[in-house]
């Protein structure tokens, strides 16, 4: 019988690290999450599209959602231990996340398109009359 089968499971989270090392690692992830929260708030006060000569809120929305995606990945991967889940569990949740991403990206693209072409185009047409 293999040693894995004879020892009681200490859980999927026991990565062989000491308690202190594991707790410090969690604290580091927490620090990163707080830093990213500060970044999100800061980004909302600046014109993110300035460097690319873009106007409107679209660049800020994209930047804000990207930071949120990074934050959620950190929570998912390290606090929820997705990295130690089996393939099936990963697939189940990844599938739902893909649908979420698809919905957000598809509808946000509409948002950008509507404002860049339809609204601005309508304004230009009205102004040109």
């Amino acid at each position: 019988m293999s040693s894995a089968a004879t020892t009681a499971p200490s859980g999927v989270h026991d990565h062989g690290r000491s308690y202190k090392a594991e707790a410090v690692f969690y604290a580091e992830i927490f620090g990163l999450l707080i830093s990213l929260t500060i970044l999100t708030v800061t980004l909302s006060y600046v014109n993110v599209g300035w460097a690319l000569d873009l106007t409107g809120r679209a660049p800020n929305i994209v930047a804000g959602m990207l930071v949120a995606a990074v934050k959620s990945s950190l929570v998912l991967w390290f606090f929820m231990h997705m990295n130690h889940e089996g393939r099936l569990n990963r697939f189940i949740f990844a599938f739902a996340l893909c649908l979420f991403t698809l919905a957000v990206v598809a509808f946000s693209s509409d948002f950008v398109w509507l404002h860049t072409y339809v609204v601005e185009g309508a304004r230009a047409a009205v102004g040109g009359m």
């Binding site: 189940i92 949740f93 739902a96 649908l99 979420f100 957000v104 509808f107 509409d110 948002f111």
Partner: peptide
């Protein structure tokens, strides 16, 4: 697995509201 399935359904629950919010906003 049961919890991940439940959380997957929860993602879809909030996705519906998020999508509606984006459409309304735009």
């Amino acid at each position: 697995m049961g919890m991940w399935l439940f959380l997957g359904s929860e993602v879809m629950f909030f996705t519906a509201f998020f999508a509606a919010y984006i459409v309304a906003r735009s």
